[in-house]
Every structure is written in structure tokens, then in C-alpha cells.
């Protein structure tokens, strides 16, 4: 495994574009190829904002700090360029696109990754889509349904993993993928993610979650606690277990100055 991080966030500060309030207040994070990180935190700690800022949501603005993704300045890229560079965001609330079939949507997304002039091999694409859908226990007819239109919560999340499986990112940011899922759907989603990790051991994952539950199925190497827009504690899986036992209470009123390079670790 390479030691060069796939993602390196330094002192990241960000806010909603037309607002003054900083939501990310100086966040540091480093993810190396093949690592699975989990960020946990109470509501309104800025977890989803981090996901959106990383993916390039136009409604958010980075005001300070840097994000280097695979050697590139991520903040300089448009959302589509970030995706093409290998970043993937699994949405907490996947968006409905009526009238656009999943097959058409994915074909366009895969095509957009090809260099100019290259044509997508439609048969290869189709075979791959079928195979990926089988892996995620999806009926093939699903490909003809309109993107997230009238989907159940579980179907929406499975559709996110299907996209991830087709786009093969270097880093997948999964924003509260477990929310709204019953235990069976959660298992299917987690199994899908684990299969993808097995397939490409250099793929990195950043799980954003409120609950420990997801981490029983996708085992993180590192767990970070996020409070008030920064990471206040980092460690191994035991951090999540502590949280499960004690809740976020111990972090209430926690204030810390952004502290540059060194992550805060408590043993």
C-alpha cells in the first residue's frame, strides 16, 4: 500500500455560500489508499457539509485550508471534474430525476469518464451493469426505472452503491448511507461495499455516520469524532464503541483551536 495519501485535508474551513456562519472550522484528515475511515458526530457537527464540500456542491464555499486529492487541488475542480478524478459521494438523500432511466444515467456518467473521441462499448457496459446489479441483488428491470423516482429508501441507497460500483472511485465518501435502512437493506448495501473493497483493495472509503450500527458491517480502520466543524478525536474502531457506550455527551461544549498538521489522538 502506498504511503501517499489519496486525500489530505488541512485546516479546512467552509460555510454555506450565502451565509456567514462557518460550519467547518478547521478540519484535518488524511486518508491513504485502501483505508476505511469513519467520521462520527452529533447532529449539526458539520459531517454532511464536509461531504458536500468535498464533492463540490455549489451551495457551499471553502473559506480557508486545502484539500489535496491524488495530488490535485480538489477545491479548484468543478463537481463533474472531481468525479472524473475518482471521487464519489454516496448521497444521504439521493435526488429524483424523473424520465431518466438508470441505464441511461449510468451510461452517460461512464461515457463522461472516457477521453474525448473514445466511444463507450455499449455491450461491455451492459454486461457490467447486469453483473453489478446481480451483485447488489437488484432485478435487471431496475435499470429501466427512472433515477430514484418513486424508490423506497432502501432502493435509493442501493442505487447509490450501484453507481459507485459502476464508476469505480478511488475514494468513496458515504454520507449517512445507513440512515433510513432496515437491517436487511443495510446488510445488502454493506456487502456490496465490502465486495467492492475486496475487488479493489486500493479504494478508500470515508464513512459518515451518526450511529455505530453501520460500522458492524463495514469495518473501519480509523474512527474520528467530529464536533463543531472539526475532528476532536481520532483512533481505531474502539472510538466508535466508546461513543456507543457514552454517547456524544462527553464532547458537548468541546472547543478546540484548529491545530494544523497533527491529528488529535487520545489513547
Amino acid at each position: 500500500m502506498s504511503d501517499t495519501p489519496v486525500l489530505k485535508i488541512k485546516n479546512l474551513q467552509a460555510k454555506v455560500a450565502e451565509d456567514e456562519l462557518r460550519i467547518l472550522t478547521g478540519l484535518d484528515l488524511e486518508i491513504k489508499p485502501g483505508e476505511i475511515h469513519a467520521i462520527m458526530g452529533p447532529n449539526a457537527s458539520g459531517k454532511s457539509t464536509l461531504a458536500k464540500v468535498l464533492a463540490g456542491h455549489p451551495g457551499y464555499e471553502a473559506t480557508a485550508g486545502s484539500v489535496v486529492f491524488q495530488g490535485e487541488d480538489l477545491l479548484e475542480l468543478e463537481a463533474d471534474e472531481r468525479s472524473q478524478a475518482g471521487l464519489f459521494l454516496a448521497f444521504q438523500y439521493p435526488v429524483e430525476i424523473p424520465g431518466v432511466s438508470i441505464a441511461n444515467f449510468l451510461r452517460t456518467a461512464v461515457q463522461s469518464r472516457l477521453t474525448d473521441g473514445d466511444e463507450l462499448d455499449i455491450f461491455e457496459f451492459s454486461d457490467q451493469l447486469t453483473e453489478r446489479m446481480e451483485m447488489l441483488d437488484m432485478d435487471i428491470s431496475f435499470a429501466e426505472r427512472h433515477v430514484n423516482d418513486g424508490f423506497s429508501g432502501g432502493e435509493k441507497k442501493r442505487n447509490e452503491i450501484l453507481q459507485m460500483a459502476m464508476l469505480k472511485p478511488k475514494l468513496a465518501v458515504m454520507d449517512e448511507t445507513d440512515s433510513g435502512l432496515d437491517i436487511d437493506a443495510l446488510k445488502i448495501v454493506a456487502n456490496g461495499v465490502n465486495a467492492l473493497v475486496e475487488e479493489d483493495p486500493t479504494m478508500s472509503i470515508l464513512l459518515i455516520t451518526h450511529y455505530q450500527r453501520l460500522l458492524d458491517y463495514i469495518k473501519p480502520h480509523f474512527v474520528h469524532v467530529m464536533v463543531a466543524g472539526q475532528i476532536v478525536r481520532s483512533g481505531g474502531p474502539e472510538v466508535a464503541l466508546d461513543l456507543e457506550a457514552e454517547g456524544y455527551k462527553m464532547y458537548e461544549g468541546f472547543e478546540s483551536s484548529a491545530n494544523g498538521n497533527s491529528p488529535v489522538t487520545t489513547a
Binding site: 456542491h57 468543478e78 463537481a79 463533474d80 468525479s83 448521497f91 439521493p94 429524483e96 463522461s112 453507481q163
Partner: peptide, 12 residues
Amino acid sequence: QLFYLTSRGIPE
């Protein structure tokens, strides 16, 4: 909707 599609690499 636009963000969702562009976040999959589709130009705006």
C-alpha cells in the same frame, strides 16, 4: 438535481 448528476461526472 444538477449537483447529483454533475457529482457523477456528467458536465453541467
